[in-house]
Design a protein around this nucleic acid. Structure first.
Ligand SMILES: [Mn+2]
Ligand SMILES: [Mn+2]
Ligand SMILES: [Zn+2]
Ligand SMILES: [Zn+2]
Lengths: 142, 142
DNA sequence: TCAATAGTTTAGAATTATTATAATGTAGAT
DNA sequence: ATCTACATTATAATAATTCTAAACTATTGA
């Protein structure tokens, strides 16, 4: 359970000034056992709850994108109407619960390594990710 | 190369009135050799070119969503900032060219069937789709 | 045939998510 | 303590999508 200081250094290392907003955001994002998925709105709420002061929506957007660029966060495209972010920045697969709109990570062991036989000339593969959409069993009755 | 009449019947069958806008949209979407991917803006342009009259943007949105609901079209989530649609409504995998923002279908033979070992209690799997992001070979030089 | 009706299109307004602007504030250096 | 570059903020602007309500049209059946 690291506290502020770690984040101050982490931010410095990649050339971001450790402002109190960014430190608070780091705490909310990384001071936890497991990685998680969130939307910008989720995050604004979380930060506001942890701070007594309000944080500007623009700052959250800016900082999320700064973190994304630095590799602290990853954007996940699941739903064209909503942006999800992930504190798990490694390549990994997802389940998406279409009832609750919740994202769930897959472990390595859940899906075999995927072998791509096609290749596109002049292009290299940047990532291969699987999305498994799930929904309540009884709702799609025929 | 089917013409209008087919579409009129097709639309009637699923309970949509065969208006001239919908018939024109069917022609643009389905009167071709191969399936394809498009954005709403692409489609508006294509339809406007094929018609002498303009078509309302709202009509294109409404009709695309009506078609989607009927299973004539499928929405593809690749980029949270843009909605792509696909006239190939079967379950299939994609390559996404990050340089050109172009979507390319995978054939069955390009990727082996994916075996999911995890299961989420009370939930059934609706789809399993792979997205392979590719980009120019020389651009991601280290 | 031809109104009646239900469904459709349309222009434009409204909404939502995101990004830009420009003034103010702050961290780090000297 | 002062300076400067970078950050935050409130607010405005933009972009994508959806809503609204009036005008239009396909279908039905008298
Ligand atoms: Mn983004
Ligand atoms: Mn949609
Ligand atoms: Zn994840
Ligand atoms: Zn496709």
């Amino acid at each position: 359970m690291p506290k502020n200081c770690n984040f101050i250094e982490k931010l410095r290392e990649v050339g971001l000034r450790p402002t109190k907003q960014r430190i608070k955001m780091c705490e909310v994002l990384y001071n936890r056992e497991k990685t998680f998925h969130f939307t910008i709105n989720d995050l604004v709420k979380m930060i506001s709850e942890k701070m007594n002061e309000k944080i500007s929506l623009a700052t959250v957007y800016n900082t999320v994108h700064a973190f994304e660029k630095k590799g602290y966060l990853k954007e996940i495209s699941i739903d064209s109407h909503k942006s999800y972010f992930d504190t798990n920045t490694s390549a990994h697969h997802h389940f998406f619960d279409e009832d609750t709109h919740e994202l769930i990570d897959c472990d390595e062991s859940d899906i075999d390594k995927i072998n791509i036989r096609k290749n596109i000339t002049g292009k290299k593969i940047n990532s291969v990710e699987v999305l498994v959409r799930v929904a309540s069993d009884n709702q799609t009755q025929k």
